[in-house]
Design a protein around this nucleic acid. Sequence first.
DNA 1: GTGTCCCAATTTTTT
DNA 2: ATTGGGACAC
Length: 787
Amino acid sequence: MNFDLFTDPDAAPTGLPPGGGGDPLVTGLNPEQAHAVTTTDGPLLVLAGAGSGKTRVITHRIAYLVERLGVPPWQILAVTFSNKAAGEMRHRIEELHGEGASDLWLGTFHRIGVRLLRSFGKHAGLASSFGIYDRDDSKKMIKRAMAALNISDKQLRPRTVATYMDQAKNSLLLPGDPALPQTDAVEKRCAQIYQRYEDEMRRADAVDFGDLLMRPVQVLREVPTLREHWAARFRYVLVDEFQDTNLAQFELLKLLTSVHGNLCVVGDDDQSIYSWRGAEVRNILDFPVTFPGATVVKLERNYRSTDVILAASGALVRQNRTRHDKTLWTEVTGGEKIAVHATDTDSDEADWIARRIEALRGEVPLNEIAIFYRTNAQSRVLEEAMGRFRLPYVLIGGLRFYERAEIKDLLAYCRLLVNRDDTASWLRVVNTPRRGIGKTSVQRVEQAAASWQVSVPEAARRMVQGEDRFRGKDKLLAFVELIARLRTRVDGMRADEAGALVLKECGLREALLEEGSLESQTRLENLGELLSAMGEHAAGAPDPTLVGYLEQVALVADVDKLDRGHEVVSMMTMHAAKGLEYDVTFVAGLEEGLVPHGNAAAEGNTEEERRLLYVAMTRARKRMHLSYARLRRRFGQEELQTPSPFLTALPDELLERTGPVRRRGWGGVARVGSSSFGGAHARGGGGGRGGGRGAGHGAAWPSAPARVPRDDGTVVERHVTREREDVPVIQRESAGPFQAGGFARHKSFGKGEVIDVAGHGKLARVTVRFPRVGVKKVLARFLQPAG
DNA sequence: GTGTCCCAATTTTTT
DNA sequence: ATTGGGACAC
């Protein structure tokens, strides 16, 4: 592999005339990029292919506005897709501009929405302390609304309602709007629940993600003075990833540019992958129609990838019917072929990936390697393989830190302190930890809230103040007073101090300490981590209080935390990969039903799935690996898979196909330790094919792997790869230090008998019977082998 | 009011 | 395969 062949994507492109007469902000850009940077006034559409330097264009444009045209930064609004992208952009602007860009409004649509609502939310019926509800909170409120309307969550799934409301809000439809879809019984009921939900949210002084876009639009439409004020303020508006904006976002942009009309949007219709979130590709396709006289600039030169990667991904996306025709080109030639590897099982696939990464070690820094997949559930096997090979990795998405129960508990206390009407948080913590306020008491409070038409916390306050006597009043009173007391003490405190105080006073820590189990110990550690995260935030944020921190938590996605500074492999979904680039990438699970995903295909979204794979493929600079397995575990069941039909679009001469090979003379259908393949092979597609590799086009399965026992008891696997070396298969459970029937020692539980072992290595879960505490499942890393 | 057991959903993607 | 929520018993 010769990596020196390729140009640094951030270096100035070579062989092009300088675009702007010696201006350092423009020289080094190609003519199209320079045109996009210097065309500052009026509507501008930049159609920027993958890797064509669009971030460069946006950052240079902002610097150009500030330095050459003397535009004060506070008159510029730049919208990005993720907070991470915003952070990177701010950093790059600072590099260009030399000084802080703190006055610049730069952030995601949702963050801009929060900022606007903090300023004029009262026009939408919100106090400035309003809370932001995530999916979980929102779902809880939906359930409550459904319960109030006597709709069982069995006849209508809350998730369906959530999707309905999401779409409504993305399309700027308020409850009661005649344009709301109400064609069938389900939709009618959803519309009804929507109304009720909004009432409840208003009482709780809370907004959901959809509200962060819809409410500002609503206010700006209804209050002309505000609209004029804000539109006059923003003289220049820039938007990245415009192909993934929805109606509400576009409307917000139109309102904010209604005075100056200087709207610059950058995007690529081939990378539109969020239609399920309401994204309208039409926004970008019709831009010249919506804004007659708009300047259109096309960036088709790719600075990121090799010719091979570009040709393969281009061949794929060209199969889509609805797209602007464009062809990316590069001066880079001689790129390596794309590795396409087939395996028998998903864990074999994961092993292959880990082994490849192991082989690349030293040659490529680990933080220049990424693994992409379609669904978060796929990360599990990959993680296990990375663990077996002791490869450090960072997982983006999946099980999030902030979704752990104890974290949500403490945050719920904090949110309740900031927003005294926060119904969802109140319900979460009222009996956490147990303080004797059970179902009946809570129901009584909820009923009171409904009849008084106030938030649940407010109802509780009134009830304990009133003269009425009822069972459990003392306990409820104690809780109400606890919250009131904490609220006054926390006022004005730094987020971490406040968090520590709450943890100490609310009883969570006591309860966990008392429990004394391994699990409670881990939970306490997690809470400690939360406090230090709060401290970090308080140290660097403009608003170091709880309000600022809670806003951060609500709006920051997992990908935002990706830190490329450390030498670790990145693992994420293809969606999360948008906007990132790596020297070497792996795309795993290229199987029908996964890529394209079965649900998406059923909804007729095959083209978007193709774009998604296109996005994943165009992340690679130098070398790409595609892989698929014949057998994959889903819901704990092994299922037969067929290679992704998308693979057939890739020209064979750009690929190098490998797969496990049958070893001659190894008992017919060679396999070790797996009996699951019996009839699978024939049905898999490559049935009659003999040994050798799965050559040919598209969906061909290679034969079973050759796994050969060696004298030392390990097993080697023989692959037809270029290395041609025997690689040890990693130890199975039985070879680990813990075996059923053996003994293990735990720090606090003492010595116990091992009953069962599941998983491998440090991730293994060992079931142990301890003499005093009984049977526990414990992670292997907490155990020592014991005689 | 609390604890335990069983079953259902989960795994399409996320600000 | 795992998890959370609801039904039921105490």
